[in-house]
């Protein structure tokens, strides 16, 4: 049995989540908290295997909870479960020490898997979040990098090209035309003073764009 703590200020959401988790059978909600402070107290009291924490809570928010738990219970994997889809939140959560990030909208389909993954010691982040994280780390690595002059979409295309994706795959990933992808590729080569795809891939790897 995986023992779980749920922290969310909305009881109806907590109820929904509890139901999803307990339907599974091999998981059990051992504690519920409606704000950050309570969440930390309950963790100390119940010692759960996994903590599922919302970001927007009264008192100190989910990000604060994650960083505090990182100090007090460094081995407790925390899954951030939130309404926010923006990549910036993902980056902050992972930086704070969360092991996983999931939107509430996709909870019914993915929550169980996510809990199991982080319980087993893996990270659980959506592809989109992985990408945002990689780009943020790559850009933040040094004071000034050639990446500074690239837009987000250019960075995204660069990373995908670095990972060996075809133009078609990239086009469908961002819902843009293949021709546009090619335009981005040409612009990247010019901006970064590179000659071909091989150099582009090497550049992406050297700038830590591939692995988060």
């Amino acid at each position: 049995m995986i023992r779980i703590l749920l922290a969310d200020d909305h009881s109806i959401v907590r109820d929904g989540l509890r139901r999803i988790v307990e339907e599974e059978g091999a998981m059990e909600v051992v504690a519920e908290a409606s704000d950050g402070k309570e969440a930390i107290q309950k963790v100390a009291a119940t010692r759960p295997d996994v903590a599922v924490v919302d970001i927007s809570m009264p008192g100190f928010d989910g990000l604060e909870v994650v960083s505090r738990l990182k100090d007090s219970h460094p081995n407790l994997p925390v899954l951030i479960l939130t309404m926010h889809e923006e990549a910036q939140y993902v980056v902050r959560a992972i930086e704070a020490g969360a092991m996983g990030y999931l939107t509430k909208q996709s909870a019914p389909e993915q929550l169980v898997t996510a809990i199991r993954r982080i319980y087993e010691g893996h990270r659980y982040i959506t592809d989109e979040a992985t990408e945002a994280l990689a780009l943020r780390i790559a850009k933040g690595a040094r004071a000034k990098t050639p990446l500074d002059s690239l837009s987000m979409r250019e960075l995204q295309v660069l990373r995908r090209l670095g990972m060996g994706h075809t133009n078609r795959e990239i086009a469908s990933a961002y819902n843009i035309s293949i021709k546009t992808v090619d335009t981005y590729r040409a612009r990247l080569l010019k901006k970064l003073d590179l000659r071909n795809n091989a150099e582009l891939i090497r550049f992406a790897i050297q700038n830590n764009l591939i692995a988060p």
């Binding site: 909305h10 109806i12 959401v13 109820d15 929904g16 989540l17 139901r19 999803i20 339907e23 927007s56 309404m83 509430k104 909208q105 909870a107 019914p108 389909e109």
Partner: peptide, 16 residues
Amino acid sequence: DELGQVLTALRMDSVW
């Protein structure tokens, strides 16, 4: 936060 959360809860229920 409020309307969104309620809708999310509703979604969980409807999936269930």
